[in-house]
Nucleic acid binder design. Sequence first.
DNA 1: CAGCGATACCTAGACAGTCTAGGTATATCG
DNA 2: CGATATACCTAGACTGTCTAGGTATCGCTG
Lengths: 115, 115
Amino acid sequence: MSLKKDISRNNMSLMVLSVLEKEDLYGYQMIYYLESLSSGVFKFNEGTLYPILHALEKDGCVTSYWNVIEDSRPRKYYHITDTGIKLLKESKKEWEEYVGAVNAVLCGGVLNAYT
Amino acid sequence: MSLKKDISRNNMSLMVLSVLEKEDLYGYQMIYYLESLSSGVFKFNEGTLYPILHALEKDGCVTSYWNVIEDSRPRKYYHITDTGIKLLKESKKEWEEYVGAVNAVLCGGVLNAYT
DNA sequence: CAGCGATACCTAGACAGTCTAGGTATATCG
DNA sequence: CGATATACCTAGACTGTCTAGGTATCGCTG
């Protein structure tokens, strides 16, 4: 394949950043939101999400903080950084370019002679 | 992630079947077409394409035949089967569903309260 | 108040699709 | 004749996601 950076294989990060752009969320909540926003098409599981959050944090795209409310389980909230917002914008653009390209192939105009 | 069958990670097959729907092609030609149709966004390489073609053949989605023209290199053409056309249709539908879901997340409406 | 299910976090290892980097062989052009 | 482009192929690496496990707390029910 080889887009500059294959967006089709990096979609979870994109979607995670996208929901975090609106508000700080904790892991379990993101899973719920992503499933809800996609009308149940996506069914993310924790084993996928947490490593991604940790990677995003390591890359400086998000920061995290524990929100401890008494009489409640502590929750680890994630907050998107400027770096993360920048990455999100770039990724969105790449996603659109990618979708456009796939659709161009699928709808496929006339094939120019090759040989 | 987990769509029924994660289309985002199976796009090459989809696109290969798509170009084959129009006419029989040989491997090298597909690479050219896919790059051309996508306006250069995709840059498939042979190492990816050939295994996919072999897999599609094994699954009965395409058949192949050598086209030997004198004074020319023999070329292995691929022809899409009814099974392949059926798979293509299903995959296209899944692709559309997938794109719709990602876009829904990216454009993201209001998040319903969770907690 | 003991037990259990839901919530909430985490990780190691498996799996699958793609890429890298190699290989072979023939046609064409300088 | 040698170099380059065409045309096919494969083994092994890489990477993103999934599976399947783990821990701990909260709230409900018997």
